[in-house]
Simulated assay, not measured.
Amino acid sequence: MKLRVCFSAISLFLAIMPGVGQNLAETRRFADQLYFNGRYSLALSAYHRIVYFDRQQTDPGLLLRIADCYLANNDISHALEYFDHSYFAENSDSLKVGIVFKKSACYIKSHNYSLALIELLSLDDSASIWYYHRLNFYLGICWFGLEDFPRSLACFEKAATREDQRVRIQAIFADPHNVNRPNPKIASWLSIFFPGSGQMYSGEIIDGINSMLLTGSFVALAFYLAITSSPIDAILTALPWFQRYYQGGFVRAEEFAKQRRAENRSQAFDKILQVLSSTRPI
């Protein structure tokens, strides 16, 4: 593997050196070969060399390849920069639409759903049926990420190509455990009124029992000290420990609920993708 990387690097160096008989077109072909073989870092170096030697370079296809390489390397900021360059250099409206989708994918990948929406909502949804489904699929993802589930459902229904897909997507959103449960506020209030119950509600049974036993033990200790010694001893000895575990209990209950709800939403989203990717009715 190291020898292959070394050979590719040497070949790339020779391809871009002046005086070896290769022009920019040949370097472009070499870079494209690297790109199609998934060697994005090496391809990126070659593409940048072409831009360096040809400062008037405005080929939108080349700029788009550079953006794609950055995206493949998970360099979102540079990918967005070159998608913009490619967009403004491109004359074809249909190709510009493809670039907007790629920019939106960058924003979605970085969880910046609001900026993705700004890009997507600038598009017209009446171009073609394929385009219509794709646009609504992207919009559904954005609204889901922004936790606007009614809008997300509406968009995913439009993205579906068959009625059975729409029915299954509706069933996913209709189940409250998929998107709205457990409720962090409910979990917190449950543990405020009855320590440990919020954790149990969130699915953390062991932590809930532990919280219940600890707080209950310190309440029992406080009563014991109040009876056998004095209320002041009970307050000074048991109250600080009780307060620590009591407050920690309802704070953890809320955090557990948030984590579990995020997991449920992630699983629901995976189910939606599976439904939309299915090619045959089930």
Score class of each variant (00 low, 15 high):
261 R>G: 11
206 I>T: 12
178 N>R: 05
5 V>K: 06
175 D>I: 00
277 S>D: 14
15 A>P: 02
114 S>F: 08
136 N>H: 15
242 F>C: 07
208 G>Q: 02
86 S>E: 05
218 F>M: 12
52 Y>E: 09
252 R>N: 13
21 G>C: 04
105 A>R: 15
189 W>N: 06
187 A>M: 02
47 Y>D: 10
231 P>Y: 13
39 R>M: 11
122 S>C: 06
12 L>N: 12
169 I>K: 09
106 C>N: 07
57 Q>T: 06
92 S>I: 01
253 A>C: 07
272 I>C: 00
10 I>P: 02
224 Y>L: 12
163 E>D: 08
269 F>H: 03
85 H>R: 13
134 R>C: 04
232 I>L: 13
9 A>S: 08
89 A>I: 00
108 I>T: 14
259 Q>V: 13
205 I>V: 15
163 E>I: 10
174 A>S: 14
9 A>M: 06
131 Y>G: 13
81 E>S: 10
160 A>I: 06
77 S>N: 14
223 F>C: 09
276 L>P: 00
166 R>F: 01
166 R>G: 14
78 H>I: 05
56 Q>L: 05
168 R>W: 04
54 D>C: 04
267 Q>G: 01
182 P>S: 00
11 S>C: 10
246 Y>W: 03
54 D>K: 14
145 G>E: 05
104 S>F: 12
238 A>D: 05
1 M>F: 01
163 E>K: 10
212 M>I: 08
130 W>I: 15
121 L>G: 00
10 I>K: 09
7 F>I: 03
46 A>V: 02
252 R>D: 03
143 W>M: 04
272 I>P: 00
72 A>E: 15
280 R>A: 12
235 I>C: 11
277 S>T: 10
225 L>D: 01
21 G>P: 04
169 I>T: 05
50 I>N: 03
125 D>Y: 01
229 S>D: 14
74 N>G: 04
82 Y>E: 04
174 A>H: 07
225 L>W: 04
13 F>Q: 11
264 N>Y: 06
262 A>Q: 15
266 S>D: 14
46 A>I: 06
99 I>A: 08
161 T>K: 13
37 N>D: 15
100 V>A: 11
155 C>F: 09
9 A>W: 03
257 A>K: 13
123 L>E: 09
221 L>S: 10
196 G>C: 02
274 Q>V: 00
39 R>A: 07
131 Y>H: 15
109 K>M: 12
45 S>E: 13
199 Q>E: 08
246 Y>M: 02
195 P>K: 02
90 E>M: 06
262 A>T: 12
198 G>M: 06
259 Q>N: 12
161 T>V: 14
193 F>M: 11
260 R>D: 08
237 T>P: 10
102 K>C: 05
10 I>R: 08
119 E>M: 02
114 S>D: 04
217 S>L: 11
31 A>S: 12
64 L>K: 15
111 H>E: 14
111 H>C: 09
211 S>C: 05
197 S>I: 12
202 S>E: 04
86 S>W: 01
75 D>H: 12
194 F>P: 00
251 V>A: 05
16 I>S: 15
168 R>C: 07
189 W>H: 06
185 K>W: 01
159 A>I: 01
13 F>R: 09
66 I>M: 12
